[in-house]
Structure formats: structure tokens, C-alpha cells
């Protein structure tokens, strides 16, 4: 289980063994024997149930454990017909059912047992845990996480507008709702990913993403709603941010660094510093904005995909 043994760098499996409990992975259907059974009887039980060891109970309490190795040793030394109670391991390491799984992983690594009996809060045997149980449980959980991730990805693609291919050109459209800070960044992330997929220089992709992000948040903060459209051509990407109002009073003023009309609430979140539009301008090779109070704002940014020297923006 090297995937969960190294302490450096947290893998998903590593996280899981901290959140899952022993009782989430253990087998509850435990085969037990008593001290008065013979080792021969245990041998038959182990073979029949295809297990490699079993706890020994006396009056409902755990008093020992017998494993396949004990049986092999009994066959070897000729005491296979004798009582379990005389040959079982009595010094049994147990684990409580409410312990995190990582504790069990620790035990398996330290003691090299095949199985650990699990006790409930009252000290009664309630299950048994093997390394295979842990692996199976982790597989189930990872499978669940993977399916969840795939489902989210599909939902995101559907919401974010799947690219429409037109020969060389790709157009992507993203609706942006007023006040919807939760979905800020979806358009920019998708555009960045699309450019990276096409092998565009990461610095260029980042400039496009930053310009888009600022445009998205502008629509979210200031407008009654709008949309982002990105058109990726052979030579350049054009990002259009269009909203339906209320429009900018003084565009020249809005372009001045530090000028902001954002509300206190928005500023507390770290938006509205008055450098959004200047940021977009810095990222753009060509920049055009038109706005009229009462109608809306239309911003168009063009960025060359293959600049001779990558510059600006960052």
C-alpha cells in the first residue's frame, strides 16, 4: 500500500484513510471458534470459508486468535488434534471500530499481521479487518470520487458552453449573471484550458484568462447581466464582453487606475480596486470599449496568439 504509506504529499487515498473509520472497511460477518475446538476443526473452517485466520471467543469475549500459520505449525509438529486454547496466540492486538483507518494501516505496517479483530466501545468483537478490506473500501471510495468528478466536469462543460468548431475557428459562449460571484472564473478557466490544448504559449493563455476574468467580474459586479464570447482564430483570440446595462457614465474616467464605483460589500471581497479595466488593457494587444448610460457596455479585446516576443499583462 505504498500509495498511502508515504507521508510526503497528500494523495487522495491518504486523505481517505484519515476520514474513513475502521468500521467503514471491516467485515462484520466474523467466523469465530472457541478454545475447546480442535486445531483440526479450525483447519476445516479456514479451508471452507477461505479465510486465513479466526478470533477465538470464550463466553463472548475475545481470548485469542488462530491463523493459518498456527495450523501449518500444528501439522508440522503433530499437535493438530489438540485444543485451540493450548496453541492460540493470546496476546492479541485489536483495534476499536471508531478509529480512523490510518491507524489500522499503521498497525499492519508495524506488526505485519494478516488480520486485526475489531472491538466496539464495549470491548465486544464486532468485526475483523484485513489489508484486502482496506483496499476494497478505498477502491469503492475512489471510484465514487472519480464518478463524482466526471459528473461535475460534464455539468461544467454543459453550463460553460461547449466549443462550437467552425473550421479553424472555435467560438465559446458563456452567460454571466449579475451578482453571481460563485461562478466567476468559469469562462476564464475554460478559455485558458482551450488555448493550452491548442499548444498556445502559457503566457499568452494567461493574459487571455486574466482579461476574461476581469471582464467576467465587471459584468458580475456592475451590470444587470451579460455574456462573454471568445473566438479563437488561427492568429488571435477575440474576447467580447457584452452586458445589457446600465452602462458607464464616463468611460475615460473608468479607465483611470484606482477609479471605482464598486460598493463597499464588493470591495470587502477584494474586488472593485479600480484596476480591472486597466488590467484588461495591459493584457490586450487591441482593446475597444463602448458604453452608453441606459444601454449597455461592449468590450472587445484581441490578443495575438503567436507574438514575436511575449510581453505585457504579467
Amino acid at each position: 500500500m505504498s500509495v498511502i504509506n508515504h507521508t510526503n504529499g497528500f494523495s487522495v487515498a491518504h486523505e481517505l484513510i484519515y476520514t474513513l473509520k475502521v468500521r467503514d472497511a471491516m467485515s462484520r460477518d466474523v467466523v469465530t471458534v472457541t478454545p475447546d475446538n480442535s486445531l483440526r476443526e479450525v483447519q476445516a473452517i479456514l479451508r471452507e470459508r477461505r479465510i486465513s485466520g479466526t478470533p477465538v471467543l470464550e463466553d463472548g469475549r475475545l481470548v485469542g486468535i488462530v491463523s493459518l500459520e498456527d495450523i501449518i505449525s500444528a501439522l508440522d509438529h503433530g499437535h493438530i488434534e489438540e485444543r485451540v486454547g493450548d496453541w492460540m496466540t493470546t496476546n492479541v492486538v485489536t483495534i476499536q471500530d471508531n478509529m480512523p483507518l490510518h491507524r489500522a494501516v499503521e498497525y499492519f505496517r508495524r506488526y505485519r499481521f494478516g488480520r486485526i479483530p475489531v472491538l466496539d466501545a464495549g470491548g465486544c468483537l464486532c468485526g475483523i479487518l484485513t489489508q484486502a478490506d482496506i483496499v476494497v473500501r478505498l477502491m469503492e471510495e475512489l471510484n465514487h470520487i472519480a464518478e463524482e468528478a466526471a459528473r461535475r466536469e460534464i455539468a461544467l462543460l454543459q453550463r460553460a458552453g461547449t466549443p462550437i468548431t467552425q473550421g479553424q475557428e472555435v467560438t465559446m459562449e458563456f452567460p454571466v449573471n449579475a451578482g453571481d460571484f460563485d461562478n466567476a472564473g468559469i469562462a476564464s478557466a475554460r478559455i485558458k484550458a482551450a488555448l493550452k490544448e491548442r499548444g498556445i504559449d502559457i503566457k499568452v493563455a494567461r493574459r487571455a484568462a486574466i482579461a476574461t476574468y476581469e471582464a467576467e467580474t465587471n459584468i458580475i459586479i456592475h451590470s444587470i447581466g451579460g455574456a462573454i464570447t471568445a473566438r479563437i482564430g488561427a492568429e488571435s483570440i477575440t474576447i467580447q464582453a457584452v452586458d445589457w446595462g446600465p452602462g458607464i457614465e464616463d468611460v475615460e474616467m473608468a479607465l483611470r487606475p484606482g477609479f471605482s464605483t464598486a460598493s463597499e460589500l464588493v470591495r470587502v471581497m477584494g474586488f472593485g480596486a479600480g484596476i480591472g479595466l486597466p488590467n484588461i488593457q495591459k493584457c490586450a494587444d487591441r482593446f475597444h470599449i463602448e458604453s452608453k448610460p441606459g444601454s449597455g457596455t461592449r468590450l472587445e479585446v484581441e490578443i495575438d496568439l503567436h507574438p514575436l516576443v511575449s510581453e505585457g499583462g504579467e
Partner: peptide, 25 residues
């Protein structure tokens, strides 16, 4: 956030007291 977008660089560590989802974006 706009200041960070303008002046942060790739592979930097960013220190902030903002703790909402746009930090991840």
C-alpha cells in the same frame, strides 16, 4: 484580486486574508 492578477507571477506563493472561492480562481 485585480492587483494580484496584475502583479503576481507564475509559481509564486500568494499571501492573503481573502477566503472565498474566487481566491482559487
Amino acid at each position: 484580486l485585480s492587483d494580484v492578477l496584475a502583479n503576481g507571477r507564475e509559481a509564486n506563493i500568494w499571501i492573503t486574508i481573502q477566503a472565498h472561492r474566487n481566491v482559487a480562481a
